[in-house]
Design a protein around this nucleic acid. Sequence first.
DNA 1: GAGTGGTCTAGACCACCCT
DNA 2: GGGTGGTCTAGACCACTCA
Lengths: 251, 251
Amino acid sequence: MTARYVGIAAELREAIVRGEYAVGAQLPSEAELAARFAASRGTVRQAVAVLAAEGLVGSRQGARRIVLGRERSQSFAELNSFAQWARAMGHRVSGRVLEQRRRGADAAEAARLALQPGDPVLSVLRLRSLEGEPVLLERTVYAGWIAPAVERIDPGCESVTQALYDGVGLVIAYGEHLIDAVAAGAEDSRLLAVRRGSPLLRQRRVTTTHEGRPVELSDDRYRAGSVTFSIRNSVDANPLVRQVGDLRPAQ
Amino acid sequence: MTARYVGIAAELREAIVRGEYAVGAQLPSEAELAARFAASRGTVRQAVAVLAAEGLVGSRQGARRIVLGRERSQSFAELNSFAQWARAMGHRVSGRVLEQRRRGADAAEAARLALQPGDPVLSVLRLRSLEGEPVLLERTVYAGWIAPAVERIDPGCESVTQALYDGVGLVIAYGEHLIDAVAAGAEDSRLLAVRRGSPLLRQRRVTTTHEGRPVELSDDRYRAGSVTFSIRNSVDANPLVRQVGDLRPAQ
DNA sequence: GAGTGGTCTAGACCACCCT
DNA sequence: GGGTGGTCTAGACCACTCA
């Protein structure tokens, strides 16, 4: 059963997308919505909170909520999975494993994966394409405990996240992501078919299970112009944080 | 008066940062926290929701909440203001206006600023430095209605956002941001002291007032290695969205 | 001053996790 | 089956906006 507030949020979202409430226009008051949906005010507040989290509406005490945008934020959870994102957006995605080997974790990897240095990890190099064009080079390090399941995955598999879920029921629930720009190195330029030194958008991430257990560490590089990250923020509630870069030059 | 739940969230956050609840460990149950803080369960839930939004804790139905991380996400609202972010992080920030002129909006600008093509806008080129080193080149277009206030700002002013607030009480409440990587152009490379074609992290943004009225449009380019964007996400609740780039090559 | 969103309470039922 | 978080209700008071 879907929750009441989810349904109410969906109805309001559709009304916004339809243009029934124009960008900049006011939403009905909470009391009005509560009456219309025959729900309590609390439930209505939960519903509009969903829309606020999607960046569609904004609010301030004492004034009606207003519509900020119409594009629905495809509230998929998939910063973590390239394939799931791409398919949800209607893109044709493919990928292949170029290299895969077991080795021992170095100190930095061990720390981020909650392992000891030297503990076994699985290192994978994957090239992903959108509409047939290579756009993303993934260098992923999996914690040893999940390595067997990863090795069983078909090398041409579209979505590793999906395969891990289907195969061993693993849910990648949380992620931390660092986004910056780097110059393409020798391997990057060869595999992504760009000039050496040309700009790449880099996303480094650590993902964990529901229990907070680290699963993988990844350095993903997108060809410039192929993918853009988009964020809506408001004066209160801002999930994105800028950080000063490392002192050492981007490697 | 600060709200009750904000205080409870602060106490829990401190306990996490102190290490009282280790990463991966469980938080007390809602009932327990409600008793400890002599608050209702609803209020406690509001408090932990704050921590969840900061990416510090995760939750799933039926199981205790767990701690995901210890670094507090500096819950500043300032994706919008470079200076406010930098100062909050303890960096020395400066900036200067290199160019400033009024002109008419082109079609794209007009659409995003809710103006008519040809309506007056103020175009500003600003170079910002961190610890004395130039790291950010801002190309900003202000809507005509705010232009006079912008022109009154001291060209060496640290924070334009702050100046607009102090000067005319303008609050920049919402923003939409697109993040990608581009190659440094001729002007970029000269002003940021990098080689032509070298990678820059680009943040394009539109910001609006509380009422949803667009204030400015900006193309900000960070020298590679100087600044990183960081995001925590979870299976449900993901404010960040990937988009396929424009068809035309990054300009 | 009327209307609106922000906060808080107390209690209820359910779905899910764990043992 | 007991504990836990997720959902929902009904009512209350307050802070703020706006005319």
